[in-house]
Design a protein around this nucleic acid. Sequence first.
DNA 1: CTATCTGCAAATAATTTGCATGTAC
DNA 2: GTACATGCAAATTATTTGCAGATAG
Lengths: 131, 131
Amino acid sequence: METKFRRNTKQRQAILAELCARKTHPTANELFHAVRDRLPRISLGTVYRNLEVLAETGQVMKMRDGGQETRYDGNPLPHAHLRCSSCGRLFDLEMSAPDLDRLVGTEISGCLVTAVTVTLDGICTPCRSRS
Amino acid sequence: METKFRRNTKQRQAILAELCARKTHPTANELFHAVRDRLPRISLGTVYRNLEVLAETGQVMKMRDGGQETRYDGNPLPHAHLRCSSCGRLFDLEMSAPDLDRLVGTEISGCLVTAVTVTLDGICTPCRSRS
DNA sequence: CTATCTGCAAATAATTTGCATGTAC
DNA sequence: GTACATGCAAATTATTTGCAGATAG
């Protein structure tokens, strides 16, 4: 959408609030169901459209690393993730990657770097004890 | 598919050869069209099925970081990527991340780490000169 | 007021799957 | 010979879009 002004609708507020209230990294559909408790008439399309806007304005991060669905992260600060290859969940890692984060804003092979994403793959504790 | 034996079909060979011959990170559909020059009756479903098998056996890497389509990488060695936020292309980076690669095989918060993915976002040289 | 946003439903895009037939081992 | 793989087409899943009515600023 190439629009100049952005309205602060109750739908957009509710989606952002719901996302920021979570430490998990929900899908659009999960957010849709959560937000629907408060706004019963909200539609899935609206959730997708708002997440797109929020990602453009940098309030939210889109994460397409893992499974089939896009997940969203309400934490705008740089932090690494761990994806469980068994259950597909994404966890925040305390760890950061200072050497890599420093690359933001620099040029590499003529490319201006705007973000650094670090994702580890592994098996999370619940999945390990289950097997 | 939970099968024991894996056949070395000409389709699977052709897909892997085509992928390894490239420095780019093609989509399933791009590979489909490329391989079809040699195997005119190959189907898109077969390409998807084989890429899945090749990813399971570690000969190929699935990359879902960026745009909407999954891309595949025929280089099994660890290396970072740069994704152009304008055109969506994925480039290999000479750079590696030794501090992070060292994490493979270790445990972090009880999770056994099996892989580390590093992706930078930026605008590639062609896209920068175009604007 | 009016440009932006919403709900709804239909459309699209990527990927997966069922099934009859083919083929590597 | 038989389990695994293929081609084809239909099904599924995630996401996007068109449009008429609603609403934030």
